[in-house]
């Protein structure tokens, strides 16, 4: 399978910065951890030395959301100020969602409902199964993923990239408010799997975060 080769890259993204590793190795060389080899069980006194001291800790760890994904932006998708993000995992999968500048969030984030009942079949009813993603459908960049309702008005959310739709975030049906509070994590819209060549095409059109900030004057 073409995605198999990405497997490694996915896990390597967890790699920590050099400095931490160096510190680790230094302590291990000092034999702090060596005791464990001879002890049959891991005593609590040993575990104490296993964990970092306050001064070694970064102010915060890299966010799972930002260290595992590269962030891309699609502006004015279909209509003006329909701003969406595409977070691309190192394994090639893409998380699709709404940016804070999306018109649905103006003047204040007040999404009232999310409707996946677009197209021939509700996007939420697709049951993809198995390693080979049986029953999955392939969508075009301009295919509609869902309708986001703000009171009486609605906005169409599109794929931005051609690929296989793996899943939509069904939690949004019951908790559309997640879009208002955590649009970049729990409030994401869908997960897609583009083929590498489709991604190559899409990434030429998509903007980087810097370009996004520049364009929106953030």
């Amino acid at each position: 399978m073409e995605f198999e080769s990405w497997e490694g890259a996915a896990e390597s993204s967890y790699k920590r910065e050099e400095t931490r590793r160096d510190f680790q190795s230094q302590r291990e060389e000092e034999g702090v951890l060596q005791q464990n080899v001879d002890d049959t069980s891991c005593s609590s006194s040993t575990t104490e030395s296993l964990f970092p001291y306050a001064e070694e800790l970064p102010p915060r760890p890299p966010r799972a959301n930002s260290c595992n994904y590269t962030h891309w932006v699609a502006l004015d998708v279909g209509k003006d100020f329909h701003d969406q993000y595409v977070f691309r995992h190192a394994n090639g999968l893409c998380v699709i969602g709404l940016l804070p500048t999306h018109v649905a969030f103006k003047p204040t984030p007040a999404v009232t409902a999310v409707d996946f009942n677009v197209g021939k079949q509700s996007r939420a009813d697709l049951k993809v199964s198995g390693k080979r993603k049986k029953n999955a459908i392939t969508l075009e960049p301009n295919s509609v993923l869902c309708k986001v309702m703000v009171g009486e008005s609605f906005y169409l959310i599109r794929c931005c990239v051609r690929g296989v739709l793996l899943e939509v975030n069904e939690r949004l049906i019951k908790a559309p408010g997640l879009l208002n509070t955590q649009a970049d994590t729990e409030g994401h819209i869908a997960i897609m799997m583009p083929r590498p060549e489709d991604w190559a095409k899409a990434s030429k059109v998509l903007l980087t975060l810097e370009q996004y900030r520049e364009r929106r004057g953030l």
Binding site: M1, F3, E4, W6, E7, E11, G130, K133, L166
Partner: peptide
């Protein structure tokens, strides 16, 4: 997500038997 490209998309029930916490001074 990090293994979704090679594993079947499923919701799996998993049990956490217990948790303990320890502060880092």
């Amino acid at each position: 997500v990090r293994v979704l490209h090679r594993r079947s998309p499923l919701t799996r029930p998993r049990t956490i038997h217990w948790m303990r916490c320890k502060e880092i001074k």
